[in-house]
Design a protein around this nucleic acid. Structure first.
Lengths: 249, 249
DNA sequence: CGGGACGTTGACGTTAATCAACTACCGTGG
DNA sequence: CCACGGTAGTTGATTAACGTCAACGTCCCG
């Protein structure tokens, strides 16, 4: 609670002590639900009457073009909120990637509460700010990174979120198609990038859905768009396949 | 059909009566400043001690990669706010595109005020929500639209912002390089797209920095990623150059 | 009149999408 | 238990999209 009041005045820094959802649950009660993979949570353009908190699992947020291209604007993990902001409609559709537990709050309670209860207000601010920060990263990635760099950056994001330190193995919860539609590339490109990184000795794929970063420095500078280092090695990746293979195995 | 649902979804649900900045000015006073083109307003990673409102002109928000690629995450017009949210540092650098008038508020006044004054709270909410809505559009554009479609969508955004109705001429305030760095393409691609649209009779370029949309339907469906219609005409653009030229001139 | 910033246009090369074949891994039912 | 089909992922060959390189035009400011 000291932390909460701290948030109220100073407005908390990048790594908040509590998730937006935790904050909200301290102030409001909502209805719990379980969502099966592929089932949808909100529909683009529908009237927004609820705010949803993700308790466990993973939700994907997406939009389609008329001719069927899909863009996944973000993945929402446990602790995240969906539907915050002054919108009267959902801007995206949302679906469960894996079986997910969610809590449904009435949007009105939150709007009303934001005026009076500093805890609710902070939860909302925090959710909005976190989303914007995430969007900055995503947008730079889409706007100015090459295909393989996008994949690398995304892996680092996954690894950071897991937060189990550098050497730990991370899970890729979503399918290649989900990754591809988030990164603006094809599934083939994702697959090739992953195996290229492995051949370069930057990481190890224990199976299709799990990886361990071996050379976070190399991966990190490549992902941040430092092509002075990255592109040469990238170009060599075909020629040096055999040599680099030593690192995997 | 597709067009209707498209309009509905991407856009801020209600056109707010007042800009975030107007709201804020009703509750707080700030210091006015004038910024020359290219001069910077905030620096990425610097401590955020102020919130800035744009009174006139245009500000670009950007980040660089280590090897010098630039991504412009957004353009902020008159009425917009910079630096809202629970951040302790700026997430991007900001520079004036054209000579701009801004108002500088102390971040602390706003943070404190958000708790007590509903007007300030609304201004902040509105700014955050508008930014997120804009980001959705930008991100879909970068993630799943082809180069020419991105240019088309951006032109429509410019035209909508100007808001002078369909047939009115709009200004392209920023340079080709700014457009390119916002859209994740090169200046050559922007230039070619513009002239391709002109040859197709979709718009008219009065000069390099001004255009009038002639066939907003075609442009709109192309921009929203309806390649069933768009790609054929795109492919024809070389073969039919002569015929299409009639529309320009 | 020269220099520089900005924009356009064409020729060419590279990146990544597309197309296609193939493998691995399920769960289901014969 | 293995055949079966369906989904997910990998990998190679080819092609389309767009970036790169380069030449040139235009406007503006000194």
């Amino acid at each position: 609670m000291d932390r909460l009041s701290n948030n109220k005045t100073g407005l908390s820094p990048q790594a908040p002590a509590l998730s937006a959802l935790s904050l909200l649950r301290g102030a409001l009660t909502g209805v719990a639900r379980t969502i099966a993979p592929g089932q949808n949570v909100s529909v683009e353009g529908a009237k927004r009457e609820t705010v949803i908190g993700v308790v466990s699992g993973l939700i994907r947020f997406f939009r389609m073009t008329p001719d069927g291209r899909r863009h996944i604007s973000r993945f929402v993990h446990a602790g995240g909120l969906i539907g915050v902001g002054m919108n009267i409609t959902y801007r995206n559709s949302a679906e469960a990637v894996t079986t997910s537990k969610i809590i449904v709050f009435r949007a009105k309670s939150i709007e009303a509460g934001a005026g009076e209860d500093p805890v609710i207000r902070n939860a909302v601010f925090q959710a909005l700010t976190e989303e914007l920060t995430a969007r900055d990263r995503t947008q730079l990635r889409l706007g100015r990174l090459l295909a393989d760099e996008r994949v690398a950056d995304f892996l680092l994001e996954l690894s950071d979120e897991a937060g189990d330190g550098v050497a730990a193995s991370s899970a890729i919860v979503m399918s290649r198609a989900d990754m591809a539609d988030h990164l603006g590339v094809t599934i083939e490109t994702v697959s090739r990038a992953l195996h290229r990184f492995q051949k370069l000795g930057w990481l190890r794929l224990t199976d299709a859905r799990h990886f361990t970063i071996l050379r976070s420095g190399a991966l990190r500078s490549f992902a941040s768009g430092d092509s002075d280092i990255a592109l040469p090695s990238y170009r060599l990746s075909h020629a040096n396949e055999r040599e680099a293979l030593q690192c995997a195995a």
